[in-house]
Every structure is written in structure tokens, then in C-alpha cells.
Amino acid sequence: MTQMNWTSRLVAHARLRRVRRRHFLVMSAASIGGVLVYSLDHKVSRLVAQPTKTFKIPLRFFTEREALIVAAAASRIIPSDESGPGAREAGVVIYIDRQLAGPWGRDARRYTHMPFADSAAPEFGYQGAASPQRIYREGLKQLSGFDRLPLSEQDARLVEIEQGVFFDLLRRNTIEGTFCDPLHGGNVDMVGWQLIGFPGPRMSNAAEIDKYRGEEFRPKPASLTQMTRKPHRPSEDEAT
């Protein structure tokens, strides 16, 4: 046990020292339209009355360029439009950045023994050697300059890649980041949950389940942290 802790600490230390130039995503409060932003150290910034303010969010995996592309692409998948807020307000790019930097991004729980049978039929599931980190890094190369294109051209670019592994992942992650518990960095201010009338985790619906038959019951959403009044550590924040 001690042996393992020691090695993992060494690895973590080495990783810290190799940290590249820090990248930040600069966003205006208005662009997230939101109220709550979870910064890297998990302090909550409230930005209500300062819509003109901008703030810098430290990135864990993406470069600033990459983050801007991901934000733009996610917002074509779940756009902000007349049917309500979308991936942009939910802070999806921050969610994806954290997922990629965490165990999931590194494929920590996938079977990655060789040989890889890339040409296997689709019913065997994803068989590639590339981790989510790699898939994004490679995939984003195909989208260079994406965020500066007019919207119709952005859509055309996405149509070109929509059959591929990268797009599939981006689409899934965009849905995750829009609807996850805010503790993962997405669904900022629970905009995703409000969009669809999901109240978040509720301890009990015992009194209501019999009562609302075919009519909406829409309790005010509360996140896990708000409900339990306790901090929670999401899986992407690893202990070092």
C-alpha cells in the first residue's frame, strides 16, 4: 500500500512539473449568461450584477485555441436558440476540459491490451487504441479555425465529420456537460435542468408520485451539493 502511494505521488509530482504554459479560457459573464461559475479551486464565483465582466478559467487539458473550437462546436450541437439556452450557457467546454484531464480522458477504466482489432464489426464496440484525450487532440486538428467560421459553414464542417468517432464523442460529451450535476463544471446554474424541467436529485417524491397524473410537477432544481449541504469530489478531480 505504502509502496503504491509513494509511486503514485512521484508520478503526480512529475506530472505537475511538466505542466506546460498555463492556458486560460477568457469568457464574458454574458456569454455564459450564467450566475454561478465553479473555478478550478472550487470556489464559487457569483457574477450576477456584472454582465460586462470577463473572467479567466484555467484549463486543464485544452489549449485556449482548442477550447474556443470545442465551445463553438458544442454550441452547434445544442445551440442557444429560441427553444432555450444551450451548451454555451451550460459551460460545456469547461466540463469537457475537466473530463479529458481526468481518469476518463486517459482511458483509466478501459481494457487497452494489445492487439487492437480496429477493423472489427461495429457490434464489438469501440476497438481503437486512441484514448478520449487523443481522439480530441487529433479531431480538433480537423476543425482548425472552426470558431471563426460563419454558423452555416460551421454546420457544414460538422456534417463532414458526423460519422466519425470524434464527433460521436463530442456529441455525447455535449449532452453530458449540459445535463450533469454542476459539480462537474457543466450545467452551470442548472440551465440544462431548467430547460427540460429536471429537478436534480431529490430525496423524496413519495408524496407527489401519486398526485401528479399527466400534469407537470416542476420543483425548483437543486444540485447534489445544495441538497446534501456537503462538498463532493467528482471523479475527475483525483487525489494527489
Binding site: 476518463w104 482511458d107 477504466r109 447534489l224 441538497m227 456537503k230 463532493h232
Partner: peptide
């Protein structure tokens, strides 16, 4: 008491066998 997090439990399967 604190596991009502869809992402970690239902999407990332934190209670299940580690396929790695």
C-alpha cells in the same frame, strides 16, 4: 447517502467492474 450523481454512477459506472 451522497451518490445521486448521474454522471459518475450511471454514465461512468463507478460501482462496476473495472474493465482496465
Amino acid at each position: 447517502a451522497n451518490d445521486m450523481d448521474e454522471l459518475d454512477y450511471a454514465v461512468r459506472f463507478s460501482m462496476m467492474q473495472d474493465y482496465s
